[in-house]
């Protein structure tokens, strides 16, 4: 560091101590990100309330109480249980049987702190869910169009052939596991794990969760009968919808963890103002 100060300052030499600020996220990405931060939480939590109205999932065209679910959240006289196939798990206190805010024991699937509203209200949850769905879908479609038209998808998101080599992916997994995050110019590009994660959400989970959501609508099934064919029935679509939601929860958990580990101030600022401070290359 001392030697850097003794060198003749050149116009193109960045100040090495703090690193320079660069534009990392464009406005469209930033707006869409924060809208989604709100929308996805509302969709998830109101969705869990809707699930509570019939906490069983099936495969096929139909499924009701006399049919065999592949997943069920319920209660025995004393415990809360999750049943997947023939396997039962005791989830007392969290799923199936839990205490509400006032200490009252309840036997609903998802607990009060995970649902909107926090008390049982199917009609209310549907109002939230089906209204915020528009906020998810319309800006989502606009963002999709923008990311293709502007080259964002091709330039920043699409994995390059070399990046998809197993060795490269494995190296990136090891770097993440050791919490070694890229410095310098490399920090401006998404690494391959980020690309795969963002692409699977943008072009996988999000379209899938919207289409399976529409498949649960009887009017949509009449309008677009191919939805039922595509997903193998309304009960299957409901199951896939739920699994996609769990996939998005996993993405959000990992995403938040990486933001915290990679430096929350810099990361969050870059998503608000767009400016990101590049840390100097290791050894520079």
């Amino acid at each position: 560091m001392a030697s850097a100060a003794s060198e003749a300052p050149a116009a193109e030499t960045p100040p090495p101590a703090k690193g320079r600020l660069v534009l990392r996220h464009r406005l469209a990405t930033r707006l869409w990100h924060w809208l989604n931060a709100l929308t996805l939480f509302v969709m998830l939590m109101s969705g869990l309330m809707i699930f509570n109205a019939h906490p069983r999932l099936y495969w096929g065209q139909y499924g009701a109480n006399f049919d065999r679910p592949w997943l069920q959240i319920g209660a025995t006289p004393t415990t809360g249980i999750v049943q997947i196939g023939d396997r039962r798990f005791d989830t007392t206190g969290v799923l199936g049987r839990w205490k509400d805010r006032d200490g009252q024991e309840r036997t609903r699937a998802f607990p009060w702190w995970a649902t909107i509203p926090s008390y049982y209200d199917l009609a209310g949850a549907r109002r939230w869910h089906l209204a915020f769905a528009w906020l998810l879908v319309v800006p989502g479609l606009l963002y999709w169009l923008w990311s293709f038209a502007s080259g964002h998808a091709r330039r920043d998101l699409a994995p390059r052939r070399a990046e998809l080599a197993p060795r490269h992916i494995w190296q990136d997994v090891k770097d993440h596991a050791r919490l070694r995050f890229p410095r310098g110019e490399a920090a401006l590009r998404y690494n391959i794990l980020q690309k795969l994660a963002y692409c699977s959400v943008l072009f996988g989970l999000l379209p899938l969760i919207v289409l399976t959501g529409l498949t649960m609508s009887p009017a949509m099934d009449a309008a677009w009968p191919w939805l039922l064919t595509l997903f193998g029935g309304r009960a299957s679509a409901r199951s896939i919808h739920f699994l996609c939601a769990m996939g998005l929860v996993t993405f959000i958990v990992v995403h938040l963890a990486m933001v915290l580990l990679a430096g929350p101030y810099n990361e969050i600022r870059s998503m608000i103002t767009g400016r990101y401070r590049i840390r100097p290359e290791a050894g520079a």
Partner: peptide
């Protein structure tokens, strides 16, 4: 036809 309950279950 399929009967779709608002609660989420269906029966044919």
């Amino acid at each position: 036809t399929r009967h779709d309950c608002v609660e989420g279950w269906s029966a044919i």
